[in-house]
Write a protein that binds this DNA or RNA. Structure first.
Lengths: 195, 195, 195, 195
DNA sequence: AATGAATGAGCCTTCATTCAT
DNA sequence: TATGAATGAAGGCTCATTCAT
């Protein structure tokens, strides 16, 4: 089962991604996905038995295919902290502007939906990971003398909260690229005092 | 109609508020509200014809009954900027921890839902207003010599983005009061350098 | 009761007539009539307890106020049969073209509706009366030597059937005045051979 | 889909025909049909999404299964005009007495209903076709010397109007077979003067 | 594995009708 | 008499889910 069904699952995920990007999370029905995939109702149930299940896989795939992680791990060995920070901020900017993640609205919808049902992990993990990465970049910068920062933990967390806020604002009522740039620049200057 | 029906509307709003607080926005059906109100199906339709309509009134009432606005207008004449800031931060803390606003999850859900349908104003207005208030507090503090801040606009916006981020995080995967306190304290110190 | 309530009934009938003319019979609800009358729901029920009851009164009043009957009784004493026939045909033409009777569609709808429930009288009576009138006109014309007709009964019935058919056609898919004139003229010439 | 669903559609049409024959048009609900078919609510919606849609198919099938059309085309080549006329009149008689068409009341109801909504064609087409057929029979009879008629167009139209009127009268308040026979005989004699 | 017809639960909405005032 | 809020039945429609093929 695993091989054949995996390729079919991939196909479903692919089609479903577009559906979630277009309609959010809760509005999507099994019927929507059946139609997008042009498969039979019963056929879909062989692989998934709820939109939520599908959505989880959709997110997972989207997260993995954001090659950022790989990129980072390559850079992190060698690069200068200021380059890493630059890269990190650029990634966040893309995320805020939904350039990498058309699923962002659906993700939040899902997060709020699950909140009601006490299933927390996904969103929290993503956030904590980002904080950790940012913090480690800051610390490296401090060690190399590139940055000065009194409290890297708080600096990283505070920055990620602001970024999270921008994501939400962007996803709900929209933000211009210019505004995002301006805010990010300001944030970097305030949080991390470059020598 | 206005008197009688107004009091009945108030009753419905009251009961519906609990429903939205418990179930978010999209999951709530007219039936849920009918049951919460213990009225007949047809009875509800005399006052409201969609959950969205009800939700708008629920939010409006919740917004008005957050007496903060009044409080502020009283303080703003006389008080020291540092007191105002303290008050502002406390309000935000309450909001983050959902102590004033059990509707927060439903509000975000609604914002994302409307996003799909291009109706933006509400969430944006709330955010912009908060930024304006914060900025004016900062400026007053600068004028009185209490605060030092190079760029009040960015400082205010940045701080509100972070607060927004905390709200979301709190509403989705939860935050402890301690964590919120710690972040807010750090933010205040960083954004506004108290003499 | 009778006086006061009668005037109120008249008022209801008047308003309801417009509703039936516009919407037919079955589509009309008590609510429609309440709204057209601008009275309360309960108020309407003091006088009528179904749309059918109202419709019957609406028709009755419309039938009576079609002053034709009176006109006829005046004419019938004195006039020449050819004048009577002319008058009769003109009345029918108006009816066909719905100029006197905006209720025509509603009447048919009602007739078919009642058919299902075995309540016959109204439509049949109207038809039979018209046949009788026409027949008596023809006979008078024969007596006065104006008309020649071998079988007045059949002639009258046949003519009224054709007129009935034209009414239906006009009420369902429309007929031009010209077409109606042409058919009526032909019918008169064929049925009654004017000397 | 087409094969399986076609046979199912046929089944639905069959059951629905009885419902429309019994209840007319507007009184019929999807629920009525669901119950008549002994299928599920959702099941019916797989094939039809409104009673009107079903009614159209019901009528269409009824029209086609009235084999008259075929019969006529066979006769029309060879037969004498008087035979054709006889056949035509017999068909009409059956229609008037609802022997072929138990749907007649529902058809009229539908015609009046659609009238309110400006959808005309069906009823008009049926009528016009009948006039054309009758006219061509008359003309053939004139050519063969069987009939004498000064104005075949008007004769055909007038006769069909009378037949239409009889249909309505029969469908609403009923007509005896004897009465219908008598009227038809008279009409034929008057309209078409047989040598 | 895959299909898609069929089911039935569940929500939406509208009205006729009642009843306390 | 008159009001209009309230009720609940009735019908519409959509979907998740199953199951025979």
């Amino acid at each position: 089962m695993s091989e054949k069904s995996d390729s079919k699952k991939q196909y479903i995920i692919e089609k479903a991604t577009a559906v979630f990007a277009a309609k959010g999370f809760k509005s999507v029905t099994m019927k929507d996905i059946v139609e997008a995939c042009e498969i039979s109702r019963g056929g879909l149930y062989l692989y998934y038995s709820s939109t939520e299940e599908i959505f989880k896989d959709v997110c997972e795939k989207a997260d993995n295919s954001e090659e950022s992680a790989n990129e980072l791990s390559k850079m992190v060995e060698s690069a200068k902290a200021s380059d890493l920070l630059l890269w990190f901020i650029k990634e966040q900017k893309k995320a805020i502007l939904s350039k990498t993640d058309p699923l962002i609205a659906a993700r939040y919808e899902y997060a709020f939906f699950k909140k009601q049902n006490d299933d927390v992990t996904l969103a929290k993990q993503n956030f904590d990971t980002a904080v950790k990465v940012l913090k480690s970049i800051i610390i490296r910068g401090m060690e190399s003398g590139e940055f000065a920062c009194e409290d890297p933990s708080h600096a990283a967390a505070g920055m990620m909260f602001a970024i999270e806020g921008m994501k939400v604002c962007s996803a709900t009522f929209g933000m211009t690229e210019k505004k995002v740039d301006s805010e990010l620049l300001f944030m970097v200057q305030r949080f991390i005092e470059v020598e």
